[in-house]
Design a binder for these strands. Sequence first.
DNA 1: CATCCTTTGAAGCCA
DNA 2: TGGCTTCAAAGGATG
Length: 340
Amino acid sequence: MADEGLDEVKVFRKVDTDTVDDDGEDDQLFADKQDVAAEAEIEEEDGIQGNSSFQSLGTPSAFSTVSPAVPWMGGYLSPAYQQMMQSMTLMSPSFYSLMANQRNIFNQFKPPDVFSQLPSSSTATDPATGGPIRSTPKSSKENRRLIKEEKQQNQKPLIKKPLNAYMIFMKDNRQKVLEEDGNASKQSAEINAILGKRWQQLPEEEQKIYFEKANKEKEEHARKYPGWSARDNYAIHKKKKTVRKIERNNENSDAKKCRARYGVAQQDLWCRHCKRKKRCLLVDSEGHGSDDSTDSPPTPGSGGDLPDVKPHTTSASPSLSSTMSAAAQQMQNFIWNECN
DNA sequence: CATCCTTTGAAGCCA
DNA sequence: TGGCTTCAAAGGATG
């Protein structure tokens, strides 16, 4: 890891995502509004004839003075340079925000091709509208690209969660699994399932190494990004969240969990998930009902291989699980008798 | 192009 | 405080 921070900041998120409701329609509406705003911005830029619209936006005339208006610019800038920057700012309202958001923007910024965007003649008008001639599709495309870049600059960089012990283990061992015979064609999910099992089988001392690594990473992360919260990254994939929420709501909600089933005193009987305060595996397998359980067996590593608790039998045998409620037992007996 | 799959652990949210 | 959800990684599959 040459620079630990680099691969943590990979994607960008919208600053105002938290203000949007969970409602998918609202999300769409929000996205549409953004599109409309972007289009309007493009049109405004395409039609720029002077600096009046820019000034009316109230954007500060950033380069009329060097400091303290732009303290990050530091020392002396030549008058010629100042003049250049000022004219660029006046030509593009977006340029100021770019400047304000990136210290080293001069290394990255490519000035917009403003000359090709301008009408061939300042007096040229559109015969249809009587207004100024719009830019060519090519220049509009260029504008779109610039606006996209600008938006990326303005967006808050997403600081990712530090990796936990298992994630570090996975990262370290994924390639090994891939290289093993026949695993090259395996899908990620399949590999992760294998790694999950290996993690469970890993001796405590070796797991401890990864936990220590994870702790170090967590401390480093906290040091680098004080005030960061995992919450900052929540609700980005609202669609996914909403879908899952609906699915969960449709599931059997009154099914017993290990805690209720066995009680706190018998925590050793709890399933892996309940021990970790996660969704009960037994509830999951029961919640789909007996019919479902035969159609769709538990996925490998999820509910099928419970190390802590013997899973409920899904065989047709009437031998009853000790954990099954009386009503469920009655029902199973009934079905069994009907089928035989 | 976005999301799913699949795993574990950490952290946030809600009642 | 318990229970639940989300997000970290990965990359092929899928809609």
